[in-house]
């Protein structure tokens, strides 16, 4: 995502607020500035261009319809938009009749999402804080959390993919989530 600069974030907040008041030009501008980011998220989770396009469409029709519920005091536009697109993508994943066959080693393949140092300069404070907390997790647990976030897989699917018992996967992720919360609040 190339929208980490505070100025761009503020602009997205403004455009989303205006969209909530029925300003269609603002909505078009919001789409222009945020759709590549959300399409990246959808594609990453669904790994299918056609489905990602459909989910992106559902996402923005919901953005327009519910933009009035956006409250910048609670979360920024980016959080609001990414949450909405991920929820739509996860709904779509859960509707797939047959889960895509487990890809052996998929967990190992998860890209290291830490950006390059050049891109680091672009990333937000929130991201930097979260990344530092992620770095404190056990490597295996960190990979499981990333895999979960980026693929929208259920506990079950994660356990199958990584060849660990379901209970183990649950405890890895739950422990990680609590550790992250503690770390972020410290």
């Amino acid at each position: 995502m190339s929208v980490a600069s505070p100025g761009e974030r503020a602009e997205l907040d403004r455009l989303l607020l205006l969209s909530g008041r029925g300003d269609q030009k603002a909505f078009a501008e919001l789409y222009k500035r945020s759709s590549a980011m959300l399409f990246g998220v959808c594609l990453r989770m669904l790994r299918d261009r056609g489905e990602a396009e459909e989910v992106l469409q559902e996402t923005y029709t919901s953005v327009w319809r519910y933009a009035a519920s956006f409250d910048a005091a609670k979360a920024g536009a980016i959080t609001w938009l990414v949450t909405l697109s991920r929820n739509k993508a996860i709904d779509r994943l859960r509707q797939r009749r047959v889960q895509a066959p487990a890809d052996p080693g998929a967990l190992e393949e998860v890209l290291d999402e830490r950006p390059t140092p050049a891109a680091d300069a672009q990333s937000s404070q929130e991201y930097e804080r979260l990344a530092r907390c992620m770095d404190q997790l056990e490597p295996q647990h960190r990979r499981a959390v990333r895999e979960a976030f980026f693929t929208g897989a259920t506990y079950n699917e994660l356990a199958v993919r990584t060849h660990v018992p379901l209970g183990t996967m649950k405890s890895w992720i739950r422990r990680s989530l609590m550790q992250l919360r503690t770390c972020l609040e410290s």
Binding site: M1, S2, A4, A28, Y31, S35, A36, M37, F39, G40, V41, L43, R44, A52, E53, L56, Q57, Y60, T61, W64, A75, I78, T79, V82, T83, R86, E113, R114, P115, A119, S123, S124, E126, Y127, R129, L130, M134, R146, F149, F150, L180, R181, L184
Partner: peptide, 28 residues
């Protein structure tokens, strides 16, 4: 949501095809 969504930040952005916007306008 506020805690975890920043994880999405490094995901590579990719411009969707122009017809997606057309479909959104159509739907709305």
């Amino acid at each position: 949501q506020r805690r975890l969504m920043p994880l999405a930040e490094p995901i590579a952005a990719l411009a969707p095809a122009p017809y997606v916007w057309a479909r959104i306008c159509d739907a709305l």
